[in-house]
Amino acid sequence: MTEAVFRETTAEPHTRSVQLSHLSLELGHLYMEDFEAGPERLREHFAEVRLWVEAARASAARRGGGKRARISTCFLIDDYFTRFSTPAELVPLVLKEAEKAGLVIDYLARESGCAAADRIEIAESVMHRLVESPPPGSDGSRPPVGQTGWLANGRRTPAAGRAALGEVKGWQPPQETAARNHSVFMDVELFSEQDGRRLWSCPFLAAVWQLARLGLLRHLGEPVLTPQPWNGEDFPHDWDRLPPLLQLTPQAAAFSAYRTCTLMPNRFLAVEDAVRLILDQVQVDAGALAQVAERSAREGLAVPEAVAQRATYVFYEEPVNPPRAEGI
């Protein structure tokens, strides 16, 4: 005789899936300093980016066995660290200059949406998913990353002090946990405190942005930072009235993808190195990971197991005296 088993349906964990493109191609990740430099700066950026777009598309097609690749494009505007102009003035300018270069922006995002969106503290949620990799010899004396706001990829230089029997400890270098022959040690600031509120760093928000583009962000099993269709009306004069993520092209491929490729100035190289360090230590929603693995296998696509390896970049050389990459 078979015994019936009753369970509360609300007790069953469920992770809702999202549609996935083959590639999320970011056409810009610029800050207010870039926009302050005028339309010429945007024009120059898109002209340079245009040279690399076809190569990224060809690479995606090759990985897919020559089949037509599903590729969506996106563009991110900084409205978190500084606010310049208004969406009504800035967004049409971005779209116009992209069109002049022969580019189409499918999705437009506000960086503040990587901190919080739809009444969800997204950055805080990702912070709680960080799992620090304890380096050899750790004694647990250092406070966790949630308190310090710093995340490293290995053992920091020990503080000066005395060992047993009063022996003076000599200087010891930092050490990367997964070093090959020599260490490349990094210590990344994830947030600071200003006027009683937490200010997230650019690398941490960019890591959240990558997780969204890879379709791996969830809150209680539900996708977050999801695209909202734009109805074609004029853009608002207030940044807070602009949805965190807009779908500008009605028939665009899915926003999230198996892989991402970001085209950006080379001054952001250090920031994106820090992003990869963060991604390596985020415990991503297991259900979301399983869904990506299952669907990629069904499509015959190889997707790296490590989340950080799913993000690729093209860094281009900037003109002399570019806008500084600080304030990011």
Rank of each mutant, 00 (worst) to 15 (best):
A297T: 08
V314S: 05
V314N: 02
A308C: 05
G300N: 04
A293Y: 02
D285L: 11
R298C: 09
E299Y: 11
V292N: 03
G300T: 06
Y316G: 07
L289Q: 15
V320A: 14
V320F: 13
V314T: 07
P323H: 05
L289T: 08
A288P: 08
R324A: 14
A302W: 08
D285T: 10
V320G: 03
V292M: 08
Q291L: 14
E317M: 07
E326F: 15
S296M: 02
Q283Y: 10
D280G: 15
A293H: 12
A286S: 07
E318S: 01
A311R: 09
Q291Y: 11
E318N: 00
V314D: 00
Q309I: 05
V307L: 00
N321K: 13
Q281M: 01
A290P: 10
G300R: 13
P319R: 12
A288D: 05
V303H: 03
Y313A: 07
A311Y: 00
D285I: 06
P319F: 07
L289V: 10
Y313H: 12
Q283N: 11
Y313D: 03
D280T: 09
V282K: 01
Q291D: 15
Y313M: 08
V292F: 01
E318D: 05
V292Y: 00
E318W: 02
Q309K: 14
Q309A: 15
A297E: 11
S296G: 05
E299H: 10
L279Q: 00
Q309P: 02
S296F: 02
R324H: 14
P304S: 14
P322L: 03
R295M: 12
T312Y: 03
E317L: 13
V282A: 06
Q281F: 09
V303M: 07
D285Y: 09
R324G: 15
L279E: 00
P304K: 05
L301G: 02
Y316S: 03
E305V: 13
A311F: 01
A302M: 11
Y313S: 02
Y313L: 08
A306P: 13
Y316N: 02
A293Q: 11
E305K: 10
P304F: 10
R298M: 11
R310S: 00
A297W: 05
G300F: 06
E317G: 07
V282Y: 05
V314K: 03
V282G: 01
A308P: 03
A306E: 14
Q291T: 09
G327A: 11
G287K: 04
A286Q: 11
G300P: 04
V320K: 13
G300L: 08
P323E: 00
